[in-house]
């Protein structure tokens, strides 16, 4: 097919964009391959090749589950629930003021207070609750308290981040209207801001509680109480048939908590 010089030839993308795209993909592939070789440098492939046999071995030991062990799990389960709930409560209570200090439209000072609040949020968010638990067990000793505080510290960042984003998205005209009646700052928060963020607040809190249930099931691995403690002792004695029971209990708890959280969130929104 011939084209005259003045009719443009259709191309999928301009050649420059095309090039850029291919170069980008090339680097991504190259980087992945490089990382792969670096990562597997010390991998003993004999172990990997042996994995299916190991898997069937472990599978054989896991079944049948030792149902009798269930009786020893009620107390740890109750502890796990308490760690999650009380931890969420602590986290939420601290997160509320942090969120108001971090939101651009409610912070008392954008230059000084806001960066500090954001730093609190980032620190809390970057560190997994298991690491918080590791630290707290070392500091205040093993037990439920370490777990509760760990869950609380991790929740602050999560709740505060989502909450301050909700605060920043509110309808400012409602705030303006309440302010124009001569209301004080506390009254503006009470009448114009809280009604707008309340549904988001409940949603976020319940969502975090749901996540915390999952996380609190394993905190015991580092000594912070709950089901994880039982998991740790079963693993160290290679009692795989008990591990199965623990896994099933965890699975059931997670499913129930997810159902509750979905139910509550639908009710408040």
């Amino acid at each position: 097919m011939t084209t005259r010089a003045d009719t443009p030839i259709w191309q999928f993308r301009t050649s420059k964009q095309h090039m850029l795209r291919w170069v980008g993909w090339f680097w991504l592939v190259a980087l992945s391959v490089f990382c792969w070789t670096l990562m597997t440098e010390d991998t003993i492939w004999a172990f990997v090749a042996d994995a299916p046999r190991q898997a069937s071995d472990i599978g054989g030991r896991m079944l049948p589950p030792r149902w009798g062990y269930l009786n020893q799990l009620w107390q740890p389960l109750w502890d796990t629930l308490n760690i999650a709930t009380l931890g969420t409560l602590i986290g939420v209570i601290i997160a509320i003021p942090v969120a108001f200090l971090a939101a651009g439209n409610t912070t008392p000072s954008r230059r000084f207070v806001r960066p500090v609040a954001l730093l609190v949020i980032v620190t809390s968010r970057s560190i997994n609750s298991l690491i918080w638990a590791l630290l707290l067990v070392a500091i205040i000793g093993p037990g439920l308290l370490a777990g509760i505080v760990a869950i609380g510290l991790r929740s602050i960042g999560f709740v505060a981040k989502l909450l301050y984003e909700a605060i920043e998205e509110i309808d400012e005209s409602q705030v303006e209207a309440v302010r124009s009646t001569g209301a004080s700052e506390a009254q503006v928060i009470d009448y114009a801001i809280i009604p707008q963020i309340l549904p988001a607040f409940w949603g976020i809190s319940v969502f975090r509680w749901d996540i915390n249930i999952r996380e609190s099931t394993i905190l015991g691995l580092v000594g912070a109480g709950g089901l994880g403690l039982q998991l740790q002792s079963s693993l160290s004695t290679l009692a795989w048939n008990q591990v199965t029971v623990i896994f099933l209990v965890i699975l059931a708890t997670v499913v129930v908590s997810e159902w509750v959280s979905a139910k509550v969130r639908r009710a408040v929104l």
Binding site: E176, T181, G182, L198
Partner: peptide, 18 residues
């Protein structure tokens, strides 16, 4: 002084959830 001045807004600016 603000409480002596009433204001009506374009998009009503009611607090919707109250």
């Amino acid at each position: 002084a603000r409480r002596r001045i009433g204001m009506i807004f374009q998009e009503y600016a009611l607090v919707e959830r109250l």
